[in-house]
Design a protein around this nucleic acid. Sequence first.
DNA 1: TTGCTCCTCACGTCACGTGAGGTGGC
DNA 2: TTGCTCCTCACGTCACGTGAGGTGGC
Lengths: 118, 118
Amino acid sequence: MRVGELARRTGVSVRLLRYYVEQGLLHPVRRPGGFREYQESDVGVVRSIRRLLGAGLPTALIARMLPLLDADDRGADPGLAEVLTRECSRIDRSIADLHDSRQLLHRLIATAPPAPHR
Amino acid sequence: MRVGELARRTGVSVRLLRYYVEQGLLHPVRRPGGFREYQESDVGVVRSIRRLLGAGLPTALIARMLPLLDADDRGADPGLAEVLTRECSRIDRSIADLHDSRQLLHRLIATAPPAPHR
DNA sequence: TTGCTCCTCACGTCACGTGAGGTGGC
DNA sequence: TTGCTCCTCACGTCACGTGAGGTGGC
């Protein structure tokens, strides 16, 4: 499929999909004419990318993880497990922080004036 | 206190503290000589700012929330409660995404080769 | 030929970091 | 006078957005 369809199916903007290609996260083939051709499986890959970026991982690290998601290519990146373990701890702290922030927001909502009607 | 002490006590860089002033999140007074003078209470304010930024709120929204944290100044910002309610939902989704990401990382760590020793 | 989609620059944004070069108070 | 801290530009980065202007396939 071409970029427009991938954008529709993932909810990710065309511009952003091209950015991910540029960062080495997606590897579409080029058709004659220059159009990028994506695979079915790229839909799932994009969803994984979004999830991991949302968790605060940088694109360079995600690029190292994607071969493992294909599950054929293991044994190639020494040190990756250690980095991922550290990221897991960071994510645990993020989750705790988000719980705190949510509580703070709830307190503020109780304090803030309600909508102007009534 | 001056910016250096506030940086030490909050763990936030001097540059970033000046950025928060520029964005209207902190309001130090200026000493003769140009030095910014911060209050004791700014230590707590900076911690709140960090938590909220970490939860993905933009500085402009945080600026609207800070008066409520002081708890004297309510009743002044109609519509804020609604925005905060939407942010709460967003944070809930973020927490769910982070749980998913953590699970994905754990799977990858099991797949990834262990550290080179052994 | 007309739309629709795709392409490549190129510049803006937001929350940051990293200097360069100069000034103030003990 | 010597350090230390502070100041203001100013430019870089990273994950994005938003055009401008041109080309390809049905």
